[in-house]
Nucleic acid binder design. Structure first.
Length: 256
DNA sequence: ATGGCATGTCGAACATGA
């Protein structure tokens, strides 16, 4: 199976691109979306099911919102982090063919002196506590999403320019490490990768053309899944579309 | 140092993203 994360930055705008991409990638089993930016009542469930997919989703107006589109059945759906009071819809989890898929849109944080920054860190702490419990139940678990964290300087086009800023700050990277310390592994770094490979590029200033990007979208795997992972790639093609999302899909292949 | 582009909001300037 292939499992994918893609921040689409509005599913209303990007639905045709999502369906086209799925048609072009028939071996993709599950696609986790972030920033759908729509309430459940207007979610295009019928369109997605008509195209032959299963789908689970949770959203809100204007901001956030997550969904999982899959070619196989999805069960045991959880929306948001249990016990963590949150007015924003940023997480959905479901089980597909024995694999627990956790789709997360981790807060951006805006800036280190913003009130959104401590929210980001508390959200990450709650996520880590939630996953610790999930991993007891589900040995085959993948955490897919927009983490809004570039784990290492090699994941940043210009580390000096970004030094100390949001997405790369020490506490954020420590929170990423805390996820790894649960026993999770960054599937992208299981394999040799080209230098300067990113999953997001700023719309402004020809960011994509200049490859001024960041690798902030990740797929972490439990120990049970690591030996089954045969590849992890970033698909830059959709970034060349007309009206692209600023993020591109990250794809992990699993021998399941 | 700032804004640059894109999206969504009840109808234009603003909030947010990363």
């Amino acid at each position: 199976m292939k499992i994918v994360t893609w921040n689409v930055n509005s599913l209303k705008v990007r639905l045709p691109q999502v369906l086209e991409w799925l048609a072009d990638n028939p071996d993709v089993t599950a696609l986790c979306l972030q920033e759908t930016k729509m309430e459940d009542v207007v979610f295009p469930k019928a369109d997605i099911e008509a195209a032959g997919f299963h789908v689970v989703f949770a959203g809100q107006k204007t901001y956030n919102g997550v969904a999982i589109i899959a070619r196989a059945a999805l069960s045991d759906v959880v929306i948001n982090i249990p016990g963590f009071i949150d007015h924003q819809v940023r997480l959905i989890a479901a089980t597909m063919q024995g694999v627990r898929l956790v789709c997360a849109y981790i807060p951006n944080g805006q800036a280190l002196d913003s009130e959104k920054y401590p929210y980001k860190l508390s959200w990450l702490a709650a996520l880590t506590a939630f996953l610790k419990k999930e991993m007891v139940v589900y040995s085959k678990l993948a955490l897919l999403g927009d983490y809004n964290i570039a784990p290492h300087d090699m994941d940043v086009h210009d580390p000096k320019k970004w030094e100390g800023q949001v997405l790369v700050s020490g506490p954020e990277r420590a929170a990423f490490q805390a996820l790894l310390d649960l026993g999770l592994t960054d599937s992208y770094r299981l394999f040799d990768q080209p230098e300067k490979t990113f999953s997001w590029w700023d719309y402004r200033g020809f960011g994509f053309r200049k490859n001024a990007g960041m690798r902030i979208d990740h797929i972490l795997l439990t120990k049970e899944l690591v030996p089954l992972c045969s590849a992890c790639v970033i698909d830059k093609e959709p970034r060349r579309n007309e009206r692209p999302s600023d993020h591109t899909p990250v794809i992990a292949s699993l021998l399941i």
